[in-house]
Amino acid sequence: MLTLYGTEIRSRLLLGTSRYPSPAVLADAVKASDAQIVTVSLRREASGERAGQGFWSLVRDLGVRVLPNTAGCHSAKEAVTTAQMAREVFGTSWIKLEVIGEDDTLQPDVFGLVEAARILAADGFEVFPYMTEDLIVAEKLLAAGCRVLMPWGAPIGSGRGLNNLFGLKTLRAHFPDVPLVIDAGIGVPSHAAQAMELGFDAVLINTAVAQAADPVKMAAAFAQAVQAGHAARQAGPMEPRDMAVPSTPVIGTAFLR
């Protein structure tokens, strides 16, 4: 069982709610993914529209826990204000903290991230920081009060998988007891399985499911991959070798030349 800020979570797949073809497909994808946590956001709403109200009603009916994000924030101050607004609207102290430093890669501004994390943790938030795989940033986020870290696999929405395997393995090895969730960049279920095989605790997927030709089927495929990868990690994968080793015993081989 995965424990995030004292909450036990059975499913190790977290799902984003953005970019689905329709609300109905989103709802079916969440069910197919078996996710217990979905990410949500806040946006401006004009007085005449009720799009946000309809979306919130749909998510509440799914019976899942929500993890609000601070997507689109480019400074610690913006992120802190957005987090405070999200806490009130969604009724949770969980916050996926994003402070974006650069628009082409959506790379986290790790300096603003640490600053915002410190303010929010002191204010009672349970912060899930979207970060690079940098060890020192991880240490500073933990010192700021974070008890879960969310390193990126690759830039958000890129589908490139785990870009820096060495860095991610190092992060995992360096913080064996901190829940680590791969957030962003996962493109196909094999990427998710790989993350789990490396020992990451969970993965957060959005675009790879939402933009698939059949999002519901893809959600189910990711659920299987995450389960398989996690089981493989627990089973203890073999070490790769450079040369072949016969799998069939050679003793007693017939001499037929």
Binding site: T17, R19, A51, T82
Partner: peptide
């Protein structure tokens, strides 16, 4: 004044 409502997010 900013008035924000729930929205889809990743």
């Amino acid at each position: 004044v900013e008035v924000l409502a729930p929205m889809q997010g990743g």
